[in-house]
């Protein structure tokens, strides 16, 4: 569960992951989402290989047809899930195809 304090801790780390280029290893399109993500369905998620680590990330700003194994993607900062009106809005890292 995200709390204001846990979101604050997470936000402090975001800069480490910004503007990194990685390669898409594998992806899937989710049609049944967890709470807080229902409004985004269907959406794409995948595993991305960066220089020193592999991360599970959402893939945005593209259609599934554009995706290819090993294609270059770049990290972007985006809103995570759906915050209720009184909640802190959470941001995190996603990837989009590198143009």
């Amino acid at each position: 569960m995200s709390t204001p304090a846990s979101i604050w801790r997470q936000h402090k780390k975001l800069h480490i992951y910004l503007n990194k280029v990685g390669r898409l290893i594998v992806w899937t399109k989710i049609f049944v989402a967890p709470s807080g993500f229902e409004h985004q369905t269907p959406y794409l998620v995948g595993i991305v290989q960066f220089e020193s680590e592999r991360l599970p990330l959402q893939i945005v700003d593209c259609n599934e047809e554009e995706l290819k194994v090993n294609m270059k993607v770049i990290t972007v900062i985006r809103k995570i899930g759906k915050a209720k009106s009184e909640d802190v809005i959470e941001y995190g890292i996603k990837v989009k195809p590198r143009s």
Binding site: Q10, T28, I30, V32, A33, P34, G36, Q58, E90
Partner: peptide, 26 residues
């Protein structure tokens, strides 16, 4: 509901996976 169960089961995943909206089927 399906969404509540999907979220509850994601307790078995990692924080990174939850933040990216992953599910166990995914």
């Amino acid at each position: 509901t399906s969404s509540q169960i999907t979220s509850a089961l994601m307790g078995a995943g990692s924080e990174d996976e939850r933040r990216a909206g992953f599910t166990f089927p995914a």
